[in-house]
Design a protein around this nucleic acid. Structure first.
Lengths: 140, 140
DNA sequence: ATGCAAATGCAAACTATTCGCATGTGATTA
DNA sequence: TAATCACATGCGAATAGTTTGCATTTGCAT
C-alpha cells in the first residue's frame, strides 16, 4: 500500500488491484501489455479479471500516471509508467527488447518543419529498430 | 489491367480484384485502411469479400509492393504504396490528415547511437503530431 | 480448349478490447 | 465504529479488426 498518496493526488480510490497493477508497471523495465500484467498479477496474488486490468490501465492513462503506446508495429497496446520526461525507444527486431534512448534530437527540426508545412507541431514519436548486441552475436 | 507486368515481376497472378485494389492504393494520397479500400472497391465495381482484401494486402506487403503501418496510435492497420523512398509523416490530431515530410534528419544520429548502445540500427519510424493549417484556424 | 494450382467468397473462428449489470469494497460522515 | 453510497470489480457477453477453413471459381501454362 505505497501509492495511496499518489492515487489520492489524482483523485482515485485506493484498491488492492490498482496498487498491484501499479507495482507491476513500476517494476517493469519495458513497456508491457495488458495480458502480461494479467499473468504477472496472478503470480503475485490471486486472480483478477482482465476487464479490471483494462479499466485500471485506462484510468491510469487518463490520470497521466502511465502512457499507452503501440510500440513495435504490434496490434497490442503497451503501457509504461509516465516518468514525465521525453523518451524514445530502440527496439530489437529479434528479441523485441526495448531500450530507452537518452535525449531527443528534434527541437530545431520541428521549428523548421512548422515553417515549411503550416502545421503546429505538438509532439512526436520516434522508434528505432535494429538488433541488440546479444542478438547480433547469436545470429551469426 | 495496367499492372500485369508489375504482378508478373513479383510472381503473382493477375486478377481483377488485385488490379483494382492496387489502383485504389495507388490513387490514395494518404495511408488507407482495409475497410476504406473495401468501401471504395464497392463504389468502383461490384462487391468484394473483405477477407480477399486482407489477403491481397498481405500478399502485396510480403511482395514489397505496399507497406503496412500502424500510424496515429490507431488500432487499425493502414496501407500505402511502397515508393521505395524513405518517408516520414506529419499527422493532424484533429482531422487525422497525413502529410508526407521530405527528407529525414537521422543519418548522423543513428551512427552515434550505434556506438553508445551496441545496437545495429536497421531502420526507424518517425511520426510528428500537431494541427494542420486548416484545423488550427477552425478551432479558434 | 484443358487441367491444375492458386484466388475468391462466405461463414465461422480468433484476438484484443469494451460494456452491461449484479455484487463487493473504500472512504466519508455521523 | 457503523452506516452509507458512489465507485470498483468480476463475469459474461458484445464488439472490432483480422484470420482461417473449405467449397467454388478463375488465371494461365500447356
Amino acid at each position: 500500500m505505497k501509492q495511496n498518496k499518489l492515487f489520492f493526488n489524482v483523485g482515485i480510490k485506493n484498491t488492492k488491484q490498482r496498487n498491484l497493477v501499479y507495482d507491476i508497471l513500476h517494476q517493469s523495465s519495458q513497456p508491457i501489455t495488458a495480458e502480461e500484467i494479467f499473468l504477472k498479477y496472478q503470480e503475485l496474488d490471486e486472480a483478477i479479471s482482465l476487464s479490471t486490468i483494462y479499466r485500471i490501465l485506462d484510468l491510469f492513462s487518463t490520470k497521466g500516471l502511465i502512457i499507452k503506446t503501440y510500440i513495435n508495429e504490434n496490434t497490442k497496446a503497451c503501457f509504461i509508467i509516465n516518468h514525465h520526461d521525453h523518451k524514445h525507444y530502440l527496439i530489437c527486431k529479434n528479441c523485441k527488447k526495448v531500450v530507452e534512448i537518452d535525449g531527443c534530437p528534434f527541437t530545431t527540426y520541428e521549428k523548421e518543419l512548422e515553417e515549411k508545412t503550416s502545421f503546429t507541431i505538438q509532439g512526436h514519436k520516434l522508434e528505432l529498430f535494429g538488433l541488440c548486441g546479444g542478438c547480433k552475436d547469436s545470429l551469426l
